[in-house]
């Protein structure tokens, strides 16, 4: 899983798995938090390039990390979102809290 994480300055880059469900999300959140706390991370970028499926567990992963960094003025950015991912983000009202970039 280590290869899915990269730290660039105060950004944590997270390569999301092909299927983001409850099963995948537990380890993903735990690992992301280790990086955030251990590397003084300010912003988190979720890369959905390889993601074919995401359900509400993915929303939990994003909100959970947002809560960890927003009190320090950090932001959450989602990149390479497919139509399906965008729909899930939109329906959950996450567009208010995160930046979605192409």
């Amino acid at each position: 899983m280590e290869e899915n994480f990269a730290v660039i300055e105060n950004y944590l880059m997270v390569k999301m798995p092909s299927e983001v469900d409850h099963h995948e999300s537990m380890a993903l959140s735990k690992k992301a938090d280790e990086y955030i706390l251990g590397n003084r991370i300010k912003n988190v970028v979720f890369d959905f390039e390889d993601t074919k499926f995401m359900d509400s567990a993915g929303i939990g992963v994003i909100i959970g990390r947002y809560k960890k960094i927003e009190c320090f003025g950090g932001k959450v950015i989602a990149v390479n979102c497919s139509r399906q991912i965008k729909r899930i983000l939109d329906m959950s009202g996450l567009y208010k809290y995160i930046e979605v970039m192409e």
Binding site: S56, A57, I59, G60, V61, G64, I88, M91, S92
Partner: peptide
Amino acid sequence: ELERSGMGFSF
């Protein structure tokens, strides 16, 4: 505490 979004039934 399990970081559930509460969106399951809504989806």
